[in-house]
């Protein structure tokens, strides 16, 4: 009788201890996951750059030289591959026609006879191409100044704002498939006395930084469960 009196209150405690010791405890932890690069550049024989379609000439800037320089000198560092400039026949005149349409329509690379021929002529290759728009706006701003007496005056000034939008395509030629398509945009309020070429280069450098980071493997954090007991 005595024994049962002792055992009865101890039983729930024993059961609780047993349950606690048997139960697993979890804690979440974040692990970095590399979802892979934009493309496996090493798997291709060549990486080419085809000139962008642009409407920049209206801004009085030689955009082509700067874009070519970026793709031949800076992008290779990001992808660890040499980028070769490709100038397909008639591309310059096609670009001129496309420019007249204000870049409103995207090129259907897979269905374009021109591009199909280019891709077939360069097997096992990747192609960088795209389009770039530059819009130079003039905006009126109110600036507060002080006159000789020290009184505040509002002065109306006109400032330039440069807007740039670039859409970059990375195409697997064999499959005629776009494997990366990114649109980058930037704005710049140029300082006094800067040349249009300087403004363009400054803006394009910002877009290049974005493009290069888009080409790098991106780290994504995901949750996993640790069993702590």
């Amino acid at each position: 009788m005595k024994k049962s009196k002792l055992a009865l209150p101890a039983l729930p405690v024993l059961l609780a201890v047993l349950a606690w010791s048997c139960a697993d405890a979890y804690s979440p932890v974040t692990v970095p996951v590399l979802p892979g690069k934009a493309a496996d550049f090493a798997a291709f024989q060549n990486v080419y750059f085809i000139d962008f379609v642009s409407d920049v000439s209206e801004a009085g800037v030689d955009a082509q030289a700067e874009i070519r320089r970026t793709f031949s000198e800076e992008v290779p560092f990001a992808i660890d591959r040499k980028v070769v400039l490709l100038e397909p026949e008639h591309w310059a005149s096609i670009r001129g026609i496309l420019q007249r349409y204000g870049l409103s329509a995207d090129i259907e690379y897979a269905n374009s006879l021109f591009f199909r021929n280019v891709f077939q002529a360069h097997a096992r290759s990747l192609f960088f191409t795209g389009r770039i728009r530059v819009n130079v706006k003039k905006m009126g701003v109110v600036k507060e100044t002080r006159d000789e007496k020290g009184d505040r005056r509002n002065a109306y000034e006109t400032v330039q704002v440069w807007e740039m939008e670039a859409r970059v395509f990375l195409i697997d030629g064999d499959a005629a498939r776009i494997i990366m398509q990114e649109t980058f945009s930037e704005k710049l309020e140029p300082g006094p006395g800067t040349t249009p070429q300087f403004n363009f280069n400054a803006l394009f450098a910002r877009l290049t930084a974005k493009l290069i980071s888009a080409l790098q493997p991106r780290k994504v954090l995901q949750e996993r469960f640790l069993i702590t007991r």
Partner: peptide, 13 residues
């Protein structure tokens, strides 16, 4: 199981 699971998490990291 806990050891294998946690080791897997570290390897994933």
């Amino acid at each position: 199981a806990a050891l294998h699971n946690n080791l897997a998490v570290a390897l994933e990291g």
